[in-house]
Nucleic acid binder design. Structure first.
Length: 641
DNA sequence: TAGAGTTGCA
């Protein structure tokens, strides 16, 4: 019997030594011959790590690789920093010199527990390193957002002569961000090609994501198309890349294509798809995705629910957004922000404040910079200037909590401008600790237009044209301002200046969703299948609306043409085409929901207001900045946007 | 010798 057992043990050792790299063989070995430290393992898996350390001494495994390995392994799995530190201290106390493998495990443990300084200490003290220890340390930096440290270490690794592998490349690529990210990324890409990892699925996903984050969507797509094998992560990375750069239609299209090809989706895929649908304001399709998620009982990850809230808010359905928000078992700061931004974009200042108070009262989640941005901007869009200014003062007073940044200062300029305190706004810009951006001057110029203040407006407009001469929208607002003061000479000069600077404008387009289909119109569009009907309808509308008091605002056109031609150009604006198509294709009383990619022009805003009154339709119009809910000739923005 | 890696939401 004894001989038989001994023979079996020899065979077992042989199996292990033959192929210890093979997980199956190891599994077989451990199943057939339970290791001596089974009690130690049991204690570890129960989380009794302190007891496990004692047991190690009892079993005589103290200062032995197996003992430390068992406990450290559990510490890494459970991210138990305290116990891990005890193991580390134990090693030092007993003067045990851990081999490379255990030192690497310590690095990994400290990285996972956010103790990068400790991880680096262990790493620096290592007498020798291999690709795994380098990659583990790079991963620690990379995952915590210390990109330059990760890249530096990667360079040091190459200099040390250690060859990177597929793990290293997949780890280091997410650190190629920021100003020089693309340059580093490209260099690493050529290394990847040299090492022949360019079609590796993890490396490929990381690589395409790097290009997408650097706004190189075509290069990202080239990498994606070159992958021999695709999985949920690479597909999601590509869809997310499209969605983040505003290629919403491409994102939805790719999702549909990949779904047909049998792609698996996870909650990240749906979150990315929802981002694209939010961009398109495709409410019906968004609802369909929400139903799909409910039907398939995908786990209700907070992140996914946040995306659903955002989708409903951006599609104009705040009731649904709030319903999802209220039903959440737990909320992150992003959940609150999504809901706050939703109310803000709809100009519902009092709702923003109500929710912000609720957030503070609940006290579970701390407001961050986006929260304050939504609150300040919500006060501005909701006509609650004084409340907004009070909140900003609170922010400045609580210096340690959250320092306002340039965007918060921009909100204050907007608040002051809206309330007509234009001189005060100028003074505020002068005294703020940041250099004013084009966005700040732009918002003040808008305020000057609304309050017909040509003096301040002219100064602000010149500042704006100096720092952002290529933005056609700026010329239009300034021209509106001059036109309303009857300064036609200045309007002409502006037109000349615009020609001189060769200003190009992003083409405007508007769309409307009917039966889950988006109908898109460009300015003076002739491509829609029902173009003739639409153009006839717009002309007919112009006649009826004029009778009801619509007066085309010709200052919205900066082309040097006759007034009659200007009127034609105005009637060709994409939002008018989308509205006309909506009227043609829906029954009486149906609300119209139009989305515009740019800021809506004054003339189209007037046009929509009169339509709502004349045809008894609610028009909800989402432009680049916010929602305009128009009912009975009155807009929720109070004609200030 | 085991150990290390990629995607999303304001």
């Amino acid at each position: 019997m004894l001989i038989k057992l001994r023979q079996t043990a020899i065979v077992a050792e042989h199996i292990l030594s033959l192929s210890s790299k093979n997980p199956f063989t190891r599994q077989l070995y451990h199943t057939t011959f339970p290791p001596v430290q089974s009690k130690l393992r049991a204690l570890c898996s129960n989380g009794q790590l302190q007891e496990a350390l004692l047991e190690m001494a009892v079993q005589g495994l103290e200062m032995k690789f197996e003992g430390y390995d068992t406990i450290l392994n559990e510490c890494v799995n459970r991210k138990s920093l305290r116990e891990g530190q005890r193991v580390h201290t134990h090693m030092i106390k007993t003067q045990y010199l851990p081999p490379l493998y255990l030192r690497t495990r310590l690095v990994i443990l400290y990285c996972k527990c956010d103790c990068l300084v400790d991880a680096r200490y262990v790493f620096d003290e290592m007498p020798e390193r291999n690709v795994v220890s380098w990659t583990a340390m790079i991963s620690g930096y990379s995952q915590k957002g210390f990109s330059s440290e990760a890249l530096n270490l990667f360079v040091q690794m190459l200099r040390s002569g250690t060859e990177p592998n597929e793990f290293t490349f997949a780890t280091v690529l997410p650190s190629c961000t920021g100003d020089y990210g693309l340059d580093y990324g490209r260099q690493i890409h050529s290394l990847i090609v040299r090492y022949n990892y360019d079609s590796h699925i993890f490396v490929g996903s990381s690589l395409l994501d790097m290009y997408a984050k650097a706004r190189r969507i075509h290069e990202a797509r080239t990498v994606f198309d070159s992958l021999i094998q695709r999985d949920v992560v690479s597909c999601t990375a590509m869809i997310a890349g499209y969605a983040q750069l505003g290629f919403d239609e491409e994102a939805v299209e790719l999702f549909r294509k990949l779904l047909k090809e049998g792609m698996c989706s996870n909650y990240v895929t749906y979150a990315s798809l929802l981002t694209a649908l939010s961009g398109l304001a495709a409410l019906d399709q968004g609802k369909q995705v929400h139903n799909h998620i409910l039907r398939h009982q995908l786990p209700s990850y907070v992140g996914l629910l946040n995306s659903i809230i955002d989708m409903y808010a951006k599609c104009g359905n705040l009731v649904y957004a709030r319903r999802v928000f209220d039903s959440m078992p737990e909320r992150t700061v992003i959940s609150w922000n999504a809901m706050l931004v939703g109310y803000c974009k709809h100009g519902m200042g009092s709702k923003v404040i109500e929710l912000f108070k609720m957030m503070r009262a609940e006290g579970k989640v701390r407001p961050d910079r986006v929260t304050f941005l939504a609150v300040l901007s919500g006060c501005s869009h909701g006509g609650m200037e004084d409340t907004g200014l009070e909140i900003f003062d609170e922010m400045v007073a609580q210096k340690d909590a959250l320092e306002p940044n340039i965007e918060h200062y921009g909100c204050v300029v907007d608040l002051l401008g809206r309330s007509g305190r234009l001189e005060q706004a100028l003074k505020f810009i002068d005294e703020m600790p940041f250099k004013p951006t084009a966005a700040i001057w732009g918002s003040l110029l808008g305020a000057c237009k609304v309050h017909s203040n040509l003096d301040v407006g002219e100064y602000v407009g010149r500042q704006l044209l100096e720092i952002e001469p290529e933005n056609a929208g700026n010329y239009v607002i300034l021209s509106n301002l001059y036109a309303s003061a009857g300064r036609w000479e200045e309007v002409r000069n502006l037109r000349e200046l615009m020609k001189e600077k060769a200003v190009s404008k992003e083409p405007g387009r508007s769309w409307i969703e009917l039966d889950q289909t988006l109908h898109t119109f460009h300015a003076s569009d002739r491509s829609h299948p029902r173009k003739d009907e639409v153009h006839t309808k717009v002309k007919e509308l112009a006649v009826r609306l004029k009778e009801a008091g619509y007066e085309p605002d010709l200052s919205c056109v900066l082309h040097d043409v006759e007034d009659e031609q200007k009127e034609k150009i105005l009637l060709g604006h994409s939002e008018k085409l989308a509205l006309a198509f909506g009227l043609l294709s829906t029954s009486d009383g149906t609300p119209l929901r139009v989305i515009k990619n740019l800021r809506i022009c004054v003339d189209c805003h007037n046009f929509a207001k009169i339509i709502s009154k004349l045809y008894g339709r609610t028009v909800s119009l989402r432009d680049k900045n916010r929602f305009h809910h128009i009912k009975g000739g009155v807009c929720s923005c109070g004609d200030y946007w």
